[in-house]
Structures are given as C-alpha cells and as structure tokens.
C-alpha cells in the first residue's frame, strides 16, 4: 500500500508545471524515504531529477517500493481539477496498475477522486557522479528566469562565465551581443534577493537557451535557484522545494564543433 498526502495541491501543480514541458511521461519511484523521479527529456540533452522526502508529506506510507509510470499530460489534467488549497492524496495498492489521486476541500465538503492508469515505462536510470563544482551561484529564481527569457531573443545559446567578481551571461547573434552581469550582493535584508558566488576556479560554459528556459518553469517553487558549474560536465540548476525536497535539472554543455 502506498499513500502520500500533501496539505496543498498547489505544490504538486507547481511540480508538474516544472517538468511537463520537458517530459511527456515519467516514473515516480516510491519508497519509505519518499518519492523520486529521474528522466531525460525526449532529446536526451537534459535530465530531470525530483526528490520529495517522506517527512515533508502530511502523511506518508509506503509498505513496499513501487514504481508508478505516469503520463504527465494526464496527471496535469487531473491536477487542473484541484483547487490550490485542497488537500491532495495519492494512493496505490501494491502491484496496482492504477493510482488514485484524491482532492479534499479544506472544510471536507467536497471530495473528488481520479483514478489514473499507470504505464510500464522502460526508462534507464543514470548514475550521477559526485562532482566538486568549480563555481556555485545562488541567485533569485525570478532574475534567472528573466535573464534566460531576455537572452533567448538573441541567440540559441548562452555563455555563462563565472569569476569571483560575478557571473556574466552572454548571447551573440545576428542582432549583436547581449551581456548581463550580476555581481555578488553585499548585505541584503532579504536572503531571497541575494546573489552569492562560491568559486574555486573560474569557469566558462555554453548552454542551449531553450533548455534553460524550460528549467525556469520551476521558478514558482523557490525564490532562489542554484547553478553549479564545472568545466566539461553538465550544469546543475537546482530549485529547493521548501520542507519537501528539490528539483534538479542537468544540462550537457555545448562544445565547439
């Protein structure tokens, strides 16, 4: 028996919004430690890794490990039927071929449930090596989304250059060249507005704008985003999900032909 309840459906809606543009389907691996999903996008350029810890749920029970393959478009349809403040419960029997998603209004006067067919997805699980990153940048997630959106107008690629002075995003195309530099912030009143850089050595990497823009669909989940970079390895873009876990996106760098 698997059962997981969250106090607010809005979190699950935001998580789905953060992955459904990259992935059409995914397997939710459930164990007593929580729920994990790992999947490559269709073109196999990026990887999504979602972790939701069991202690972040209002109720969590998982007697036996189960893997639930879901069509994310179908799940998004179901979540559209929830009000943001509804309780949401996911339930499945051991070895079931369906999952039930139930929404309850705060006053318990409206209860709706949706049974969704599960899929057998033959997805390979990739091992992500432990990496000492040369640069780790933390910045407001809205700022990162804005930069990715703005620079995508000028080029398919953005160059991210990180030094101890700051981080610079550059896009060059037919129009010309766009540069956006962010310096580390001094003392700021609100931690969520700060830009911080933890640099071991400077790094310059090039990434495809369309994937970075897809990752920014996770912006509503977190006020800050963390970019971890190292020469010749995938970028990690991480959004923490408060008290519940995180979503990490890995993106292979572009290299010269």
């Amino acid at each position: 028996m698997f059962e997981a309840r969250l106090g607010q459906a809005t979190i699950l809606k935001k998580i789905l919004d953060a992955i459904k543009d990259l992935l059409t389907e995914g397997t939710f691996d459930c164990s007593d430690s929580g729920i994990q999903l790992q999947a490559m996008d269709n073109s196999h350029v990026s990887l999504v890794s979602l972790t939701l810890r069991s202690d972040g749920f209002d109720k969590f029970r998982c007697d036996r490990n189960i893997s639930m393959g879901m069509n994310l478009g179908s799940m998004a349809k179901i979540l559209k039927c929830a009000n943001n403040e509804d309780n949401v419960t996911m339930k499945a029997q051991d070895n079931a071929d369906t999952v039930t998603i139930m929404f309850e209004s705060a006053n318990q006067e409206k209860v709706s449930d949706y049974e969704m067919k599960l899929m057998n997805l033959d997805q390979e699980h990739l091992g992500i090596p432990e990496t000492e990153y040369s640069c780790v940048v933390r910045m407001p997630s809205m700022e990162f989304a804005r930069i990715c959106r703005d620079l995508a107008q000028f080029s398919e690629s953005v160059v991210i250059c990180c030094t101890k002075e700051g981080v610079k995003f550059t896009a060059s195309g037919d129009v010309g060249t766009a540069n956006i530099k962010l310096a580390q912030t001094g003392s700021v009143d609100k931690e969520e507005e700060s830009v911080s850089i933890d640099m071991q050595e400077p790094v310059t990497l090039t990434f495809a704008c369309r994937y970075l823009n897809a990752f920014t669909k996770a912006t509503p989940l977190s006020t800050q985003v963390q970019l971890s970079m190292c020469a010749d390895v995938p970028l990690v873009v991480e959004y923490a999900i408060k008290d519940l876990g995180y979503i990490r996106y890995y993106l292979a760098p572009k290299i010269e032909d």
Binding site: M40, S43, H44, V45, S46, L47, E124, H125, L126, G127, I128, P129, A208, V233, P234, Y250, L251, A252, P253, K254, I255, E256, D257
Partner: peptide, 12 residues
C-alpha cells in the same frame, strides 16, 4: 555541438 546527457551520466 550539443552532446547528450548520457555522454556524461551512464546507466546504472
């Protein structure tokens, strides 16, 4: 050139 993510991360 864009490499795939599975160039870096191998199946386990």
């Amino acid at each position: 050139m864009q490499r795939g993510i599975n160039t870096y991360f191998k199946p386990v």
